[in-house]
């Protein structure tokens, strides 16, 4: 266990709800859930095997103070950000954001699982998109294909060959992106400056809470 995890556990003792409210983004909404289950009923993922706890169960676990169960849960990483639950929640709980907030908190205190696919995608996408201010689709695809090793990557690439060629022919995919070329943002420096500022503000914000 990481130090931060232990530190937080010690600081909030048995009050995990308070920990989430103060530390996780949008965590203050957890108490407002009224357990109607509309979020789970609206989820298009239909809770495939990766889901262990749907949103209202995660909220319930938090309120019941079950810290380990929540931080070990997979549910919050499984969200595809379709915002169905967010739109439908009768209590106007921003369910999608709360799920991301909990996932981010788990990651921050070192409790996120290694090689979690959703998290891997998020990180890869972020690095890719922020580099030039626009997504380099070929490189993003490559890094996802080869996530589990060269063999698996080549196999996947061969499978998708036809679709790729079709996209190239239709002018929707630039093969030159593989070499780091292709479209970029006009003011890359400006984007980087903006992101740096945002990071600085967020760090300040989190430091204030910590």
């Amino acid at each position: 266990m990481s130090d931060l995890n232990q530190e937080m556990a010690a600081r909030y003792k048995n009050n995990f709800l308070k920990e989430i409210e103060e530390q996780a983004e949008m965590g203050e909404w957890v108490k407002m859930c009224m357990q109607c289950g509309l979020c789970s009923g609206s989820c298009p993922t239909n809770f495939h095997s990766g889901w262990d706890h749907p949103p209202q169960e995660i909220f319930m676990l938090i309120r019941a103070g079950k810290r380990e169960e929540v931080l070990n849960a997979q549910g919050m990483y499984m969200c595809t950000s379709c915002y169905n639950c967010y739109v439908r929640c009768p209590r106007k709980v921003p369910v999608t954001h709360v799920m991301h907030g909990i996932a981010e908190y788990a990651y921050r205190i070192g409790r996120a699982p290694k090689n979690q696919p959703t998290m891997h995608l998020s990180k890869t996408f972020w690095t890719n998109a922020t580099k030039h201010g626009r997504v380099n689709e070929v490189q993003l695809t490559q890094s996802l294909y080869f996530k589990d090793g060269i063999g698996a990557g080549i196999k996947k690439a061969m499978e998708m060959q036809k679709e790729a060629l079709g996209l190239v022919k239709a002018g929707r995919l630039n093969p030159m992106e593989a070499l780091g070329m292709g479209h970029k943002c006009k003011d890359v420096k400006g984007i980087h400056a903006m992101l740096a500022k945002a990071e600085e503000l967020e760090a300040k914000n989190k430091a204030a809470k910590a």
Partner: peptide, 14 residues
């Protein structure tokens, strides 16, 4: 009133 209680930190468990 229910919402106000939730905001005040009353825990509601089914």
């Amino acid at each position: 009133f229910y919402r106000a209680a939730q905001n005040k930190g009353v825990i509601f468990s089914k």
